[in-house]
Design a protein around this nucleic acid. Structure first.
Lengths: 129, 129
DNA sequence: TTATTTAATGCAACATTGTTGCGTTTTGCA
DNA sequence: TGCAAAACGCAACAATGTTGCATTAAATAA
């Protein structure tokens, strides 16, 4: 296993993801770090950050791939996605509904890898406008 | 609103989706109706079949868009997706876990549009092999 | 500080998936 | 059978993601 390096481009990408309050797509991230590095490099950095467990790869309800720093878990352990997420179709923000735990009771013959529990709709903030 | 027509290409596409026991992507469908029509036509047919409520558009856990005929609901009403789905990463089949109803208790300030409740993993059949 | 190793990058080229415009064909119906 | 428009084919374009390879730069050791 190779030793990861902390490059300027990597820092820039991680900074954009960290400072955004909603999950970003690769094109959005590339736009925000404009000039810092090549388009291809962004893809490779994102892959690395995911394997290093620094960021989460999120599949949105429309199929777009977004990346976010999960605020409710530290980096040392896998995040338990046993709770619901709310994906606002207006502002695109994805919110963790941590208190809404989903209990899954499947036969042992099912080997569970990951849970994708997302509700799409309009969040309170966008509702108001 | 335009009146839909029953073309040969449309029949072919619908037949492939109907006879498959798992959701198919556009490339898979195009491959299976090979020669029946153009690549672009498949896209347009799929869009039409979705608006006509003949098929369902499904976003898989990996972000790919798949199409399927939903067996557990007739065509005249919207399907209630308040139950869990199991998506096998080996055989790609998506199963409805109809008995696993998820009760969502969100504040009224959230306007819910759709639920995406999918578990990814390995299904019993693929487990055995 | 400098040298060394190899992780990371840039660039070009390619692949896949999806969209748009437009002229032509075909379907459903009068 | 004739007609309106739904559907189609084709070409071109657009967005997103991947691969190969020569070059650059980060981390560590000398």
């Amino acid at each position: 296993m190779s030793i990861p390096r902390n490059t300027k481009a990597k820092q820039a990408v991680l900074h954009e993801i960290s400072s955004s309050d909603f999950a970003l797509s690769q094109p959005e991230i590339f736009e925000r770090v404009k000039g810092a590095c090549d388009r291809v490099t962004v893809y490779r950095i994102l892959d690395r950050l995911v394997t290093e467990n620094k960021i989460h790869k999120i599949v949105n309800v429309d199929g777009t791939i977004n990346y976010a720093r999960c605020t409710s878990c530290d980096e040392s352990h896998m995040h338990a996605h046993d709770h619901l997420h709310f994906s606002c179709i207006a502002c695109k923000k994805i919110e963790c509904l941590a208190e809404q735990i989903v209990h899954v009771n499947l036969p042992a013959s099912y080997q569970i890898k990951e849970l994708f529990l997302t509700i799409s709709g309009i969040c309170p903030s966008c509702q108001a406008t």
